[in-house]
Design a protein around this nucleic acid. Structure first.
Lengths: 132, 132, 132, 132
DNA sequence: GTGGTCTAGACCACC
DNA sequence: GTGGTCTAGACCACC
């Protein structure tokens, strides 16, 4: 009834973070990403957790690990694109669910989004949406 | 760089869950909510954690606890409304951030939202948004 | 009939103690107060109880806690003043009740106070007050 | 530094309650007071605690227990009077200490008491006392 | 039954 | 070191 969200496992959050940078264009094929050891220190997270994330990313074809060299972005453009679609789709679905849960009707969603984007009210003049 | 979200504390998630039900109209003034013990069992959480949530909700005026009786929704309509505005505002801000992070420009957001809502493509045919 | 006073909860007594020191001028804005652990040891009380007190004091604006740094007095002069007024008011009300309970009429209270303060009888020669 | 008041032992509070009623004239010599058993039920307190209180009151000559009959007030007028003086003295001393602790100077005490008693401001218009 | 206080820890994040 | 969260109880007061 009241859902307690245990949040995603950390290794998924790491995968997500790297994927997001890739999708945003901050990373491209061939770029080196921090070593597992480095990443563990940066994130203050167990090296095992980082390893799990890197391993899964490699299985997806997102990165490639070269022994003694490091870990490098390996995603070809088509993969980046499909990852991007996937993340977009999920984010949108989550958002729509959230709006419905807050009593914003499907048809009202574009309006509240518009309002949120309007320069006059980037943060403040949210109004109880009316059915137009 | 890659932000690890430790998720919100459990007591805040409990507060959120109750607030969401209130805002959605599933709860109204005078309704009794599960006792601290019940809720603790339901959520498999320490009774203390539930109490922290209930106490903070009481400080916000969302609920009222009555010794030996139980805990009851106490939020007047104006409070419900302002809580709703607040949740909406946060959800929208989070969504916009997410879209920007995925490389969707501010001006493109309405389009992808529209697409996500269109009956033809409720879930799947997300397209790479073009710069208009 | 005979009221058993279970005394105030410990966390309120802690709040009171700190507030009293603040009001008396022993503490001023910016002063660091003992850490939760230290205070717990000093008072031989659970750290949780101290935290409850500190948290509530923070909600009142009396202190500010800084993660990893400590807890500091934050009350602006106006707050100190209003806390002082409040403590005064309560102490006086309690005292008047006590006097009435001991059969000292409202109109006789100034006299017994005067007597108690007189240098000749700082402590001992209290007399049965007469109805004037 | 911050004194945690564990409050007085319950048996002393019971003694106090009875003494106060005596001093106030609610009880006089010969009056029967509730049996230990009754008192324990009324106060939701262990019978042992009540017994301790009654025993000490008997030692002071305040009550007399008559086997199979009950417990009766036994204090002669002189004792009542001296008990009253004693309670008054303590209450006044406590009050003066409290005022000093709140920064009210000895010479200002009569004024704040006067103010607290004035019909115009029985509860509210307490002011930061000025040295007159 | 209900909520309120408290303990004596644990483990975490920040410094 | 610091505060923040959480557990799994205990015991109390009120009903």
């Amino acid at each position: 009834m009241i859902e307690i969200d245990v949040s995603h496992p950390i290794y998924q959050q790491i995968m997500d973070g790297i994927t997001r940078r890739l999708v945003r264009g901050d990373l491209t094929v061939g770029d080196q990403i921090p070593s597992q050891r480095e990443m563990a220190v940066i994130l203050r997270v167990s090296p095992n957790t980082v390893q799990r994330a890197y391993r899964d990313l490699e299985a997806l074809g997102v990165v490639e690990t070269q022994r003694g060299q490091g870990t490098f972005v390996a995603a070809p453009p088509e993969l980046v694109d499909s990852l991007r679609q996937e993340m977009l789709r999920k984010a949108l679905a989550r958002f729509v669910q959230e709006m419905l849960g807050l009593g914003v009707g499907r048809s009202e969603i574009p309006k509240v989004v518009q309002d949120a984007l309007s320069p006059a009210a980037p943060n403040a003049n949210m109004q109880k949406p009316e059915v137009t």
